[in-house]
Nucleic acid binder design. Sequence first.
DNA 1: ACCCAGGCTGTGCATTGTGTCCAGCGAAAA
DNA 2: TTTTCGCTGGACACAATGCACAGCCTGGGT
Lengths: 159, 159
Amino acid sequence: MGIDALDGRLITLLDREPRIGVLEASRRLGVARGTVQARLDRLRAHGVIRGFGPQVDPAALGYPVTAFATLEITQGQGPDVRAHLASVPEVLELHTTTGEGDMLCRLVARSNADLQRVIDKVVGFEGIVRAATAIVMENPVPLRIIPLVEQAARDAPPS
Amino acid sequence: MGIDALDGRLITLLDREPRIGVLEASRRLGVARGTVQARLDRLRAHGVIRGFGPQVDPAALGYPVTAFATLEITQGQGPDVRAHLASVPEVLELHTTTGEGDMLCRLVARSNADLQRVIDKVVGFEGIVRAATAIVMENPVPLRIIPLVEQAARDAPPS
DNA sequence: ACCCAGGCTGTGCATTGTGTCCAGCGAAAA
DNA sequence: TTTTCGCTGGACACAATGCACAGCCTGGGT
């Protein structure tokens, strides 16, 4: 699946101003409404655009502390540990990885003190051997996708 | 900033079906349209809902490989390193952390081989002393927020 | 050289949703 | 008790949506 320059501009535009809708987008991009509609349908069909869900800020919800925990798991306990972590609301994300640990998860907490409670909840489970936590201080580059979209659009200029 | 049960249901609903709009949401929730509109305005004003931007899947864009890199920085080079990393499209996210390394970043690449190129680009910069990379194999818990929203709504039932 | 398929355009239509008001009402705070 | 606040239900003009269609251009295949 590749995207062309128009797809790239469309995604970028929607990212900056999600409220504009198809008609206004077509005006901004200088193409017909049907084209924007078709492109959007195609991007969604191909899974490039997964959806337009609300982007919720954990900090505004009262969870301003973010941390990453590297977990080491005992052999064979993977599935159980996953289920356990999935049941903890403060676990925002969980990956299994190569390298140092076996899993990496993103946590949030109400405060540094509260983080202790969250970590206890996370690691207080059979099968987790060791956990290393890194507390996030700053977030110089918040989760983004636009630069990648633009590069992808550049890599495949032909439609 | 706290959210009540109605806010929680609204966010959850919008997360599951982002396309429904205010009117349909009010029907589903069994409240007046004005109420939904007011809640939405309030949530956006307080920063709980940052927006409704498109959720783009890097894999569908041709970047199916995700990795996390822990970087160690030489004293005083922080700002330069941040600027450098921000200029790399494959760097989706960057945090400064406590603990083992000084920074943690999320990378994507076109393949495991391509990851080498990305890593070279990332670490080929003055000020980066050491880098440890963990390649993501599975993603048992994709980035989520709903469980946290529900807990936050439960924590503040009054209103 | 030819034809065809696919994408874009510009247009139309009926339906639906939006933004924005307002008055009434109940409950909680002062 | 009185004020304040949020929710309700309704109204309105306007804008956007989903869907369909014919014409046009272009690149690829025959």
